[in-house]
Design a protein around this nucleic acid. Structure first.
Lengths: 139, 139
DNA sequence: TAAATATACTTTGATAATCAAACTATATTA
DNA sequence: TAATATAGTTTGATTATCAAAGTATATTTA
């Protein structure tokens, strides 16, 4: 008999794997790459961010990110903004077009979330939200 | 005021992003690549699997997967097994060494899960497990 | 304060990952 | 049986990625 912790661990990994596959499938066939959507997703959720911080979140070096952001600037998704607080760094920010892409993508996530919790009562949804927020706070 | 659904959606995406960063950080500096760990994770969780199915889960073409599996066979993590039920396909299976890597990696996940739910009561953990299992079932 | 060290980002050159398309073999459908 | 579909591999070209070196600004240390 497996412990609750084992099963919880397994369920979390499974959820992650499935979301990962879903994300891959959603991006497939679009003109933007997965890392680019990932970037839009992060900037849309957290606002303008330094290169280093963004690179860490995505899991690439700043060298790699520089060329990726170059492309995204060229395609009009983001802009580089000087950071007055620390002139070594710069801030990457979504453009209007980037924000639109974020909102489109977020809408897909929203639909997915609805589908995944279609059999939940409103009370259960609120409880799940509470749990996830507490889990995220520990990260 | 945002709706519960909006917030739930946001919390799910945030959880996914954080787990994604964590995974990246855990693999960093190891001799295996992220896709390889991903493969080990999937095979460890679901057992032997056809190339096509595995490629879909990871989000790459079978061509890409063939060369990745070649490397993993060479490094002793997996083997190819004939599939008697359909001779066009083959099954990819973890070796003893691959299983060890899975268990090592799973232990890290286990630790993480413990940390993330450290402030949960046993009852809450069971409820979260129930929710996640229901969410996973809808996917 | 001045010098030394650290951090943020970019550039460059080499390596590795990825894809689409062509190819082989087996299954399924007409 | 013939035609079509599916699973996997190979190949050649493209793209992504990294490590290391270079530039500029901050921070620390002597």
């Amino acid at each position: 008999m497996k412990s609750t912790e084992d099963m919880l661990n397994h369920a979390m990994v499974e959820f992650y794997e499935k979301l990962s596959s879903w994300e891959q499938a959603v991006v497939k066939g679009k003109e933007v790459s997965l890392p680019q959507v990932h970037t839009v997703e992060i900037l849309g959720g957290s606002g303008p961010m330094r290169m280093k911080e963004l690179a860490d979140k995505i899991g690439v070096t700043t060298g790699t990110l520089t060329v990726q952001i170059d492309k995204m600037v060229k395609s009009g998704l983001v802009i580089r903004k000087p950071n007055e607080l620390d002139k070594r760094s710069i801030l990457v920010e979504l453009t209007e077009k980037g924000l639109e892409m974020f909102e489109e993508h977020d809408e897909l996530h929203h639909q997915l979330t609805s589908e995944l919790t279609v059999k939940f009562t409103q009370e259960e949804r609120e409880l799940l939200l509470n749990f996830l927020e507490r889990v995220n706070a520990e990260f």
